[in-house]
């Protein structure tokens, strides 16, 4: 237990540090790289919780696929240098207000709801075991089949949309 706690503390420190690094980097490429580190740290958290499938999916999908596309866009647009001046002057006070509200709400909920003795496991938590793949597939394709299918249709629609947008009209030369 103490080893898990120590691991958790170190990881939490890394996660917060990389998140701050992402926010305060002057260069968008470095911001993206800090975000990658943050995603990988979160994946290690999942491993610590005994959910290797989610951890690997997190790395493959977020750190591997999505962030590479982020980097692509940043590099292709040449947008790595952020403007020094503040373009949106109303943004900062609004962000600070919203952050304070979020912090207060989460502190209240943490103090009032999270009891040390109570179990916090959600329904279907048996999937989070070391041998969780089969259980997870069973849950996904039996209990949550409809949401799964809806999600896949949604992704398909997005894909068709992209193809329609980038399609060249007939007779139009690039």
């Amino acid at each position: 237990m103490t080893l898990d706690l120590a691991l958790f503390l170190i990881l939490a420190l890394v996660a917060v540090a990389t998140a701050l690094g992402m926010l305060f980097s002057k260069n968008a490429v470095y911001s993206a790289l800090f975000l990658v580190l943050n995603f990988v740290t979160v994946a290690v958290f999942y491993l610590l919780l005994g959910a290797p499938f989610i951890a690997m999916a997190q790395i493959t999908v977020y750190a591997g696929a999505i962030m590479v596309l982020f980097l692509f866009v940043i590099m292709l647009l040449g947008a790595e240098r952020l403007p020094a001046t503040n373009v949106l002057p109303w943004q900062r006070p609004l962000a600070i207000t919203l952050t304070v509200i979020l912090a207060m709400e989460s502190t209240y909920l943490l103090l009032s709801r999270a009891r040390p003795s109570g179990s916090v496991l959600p329904p279907g938590a048996e999937v989070n075991t070391v041998d969780n793949l089969r259980a997870m597939a069973m849950t996904l394709f039996n209990n949550y089949l409809l949401p799964f299918e809806v999600t896949s249709v949604l992704l398909l629609v997005a894909m068709v949309g992209v193809i329609v947008l980038v399609r060249r009209e007939k007779g139009q030369k690039s």
Partner: peptide, 25 residues
């Protein structure tokens, strides 16, 4: 000896792209 060994291969393969992108940039 991971029970998600193949997924591990997949995730490391997807990470391997970074070095090349960053080298170029």
């Amino acid at each position: 000896d991971l029970n998600v060994g193949v997924l591990y291969l997949m995730s490391i393969a997807s990470i391997a792209v970074y070095g090349i992108v960053l080298a170029g940039w």
